[in-house]
Amino acid sequence: MRAFAGDLPIVLEDASVVAGALTILDRVSLRLAAGAPTALIGPNGAGKTTLLRLAMGLIAPARGKVSWDGSESSSPTRRALMFQRPVMLRRSTAANIRYALAAAGVGRSERAARVSELLALVGLASLGERPARRLSGGEQQRLALARALAKDPAVLFLDEPTASLDPAATKAVEDVIRAVSSRGIKVVLATHDLGQARRLGGDIVLLHRGRVIEVSPAAAFFSNPKTPEARRFVAGELLV
């Protein structure tokens, strides 16, 4: 699992997403480059999930443009996305990973070894034969992470990877994320957990009402926020 800079940088220029009369993302400009994880933060409804889907290429902007390493049309072969509530295929844990490997075009002969490797990486080696839907919430989250990594992505999008997990399960997932990042895979995660953003983030992107309010390195963002919204958010006030 080595990451190549194939899809990076991802560049959004004045990109807007609308649903009916509602503007979900409003003229967002953002550059996601190789390096430490980027954490998208902001209150619920700020547009974090939509921004992930846009950067993943699952949806197209209504206005503006998105490009991956300069190309505006790029199939998501080197990008992976883990949804906030990942859906387990009705198969065993190992078969879920095997499926993702097949979808990523990994040859039949390689799959078994890759399955074991990925199961070990996310700490599910002993649960390979269990139906995926019988796993606990934290285990499902880690399986989804393994499935996302099956395609050997250059960039991994994570949507609230630890929402509704207890601290132990959260730590297990964060450990995997750190391991992934240290292998050179660009991690972009949406979270409303400021502590998580602080623990994992290299850069922080604050979103509010569909707009990018502030982009800063994590240390600077938390010690010396530049915008009033960021100051209030870091101080734990409610952004409405």
Binding site: S75, P76, F83, L89, R90, A100
Partner: peptide, 22 residues
């Protein structure tokens, strides 16, 4: 499955086969 299969970049025939199998 829709979102997951889209994120895994599964083609139309693969989607149908996956759904029928599961």
């Amino acid at each position: 499955y829709r979102d997951e299969l889209a994120a895994m970049d599964v083609g139309p025939l693969g989607r149908i086969a996956t759904l029928i199998w599961d």
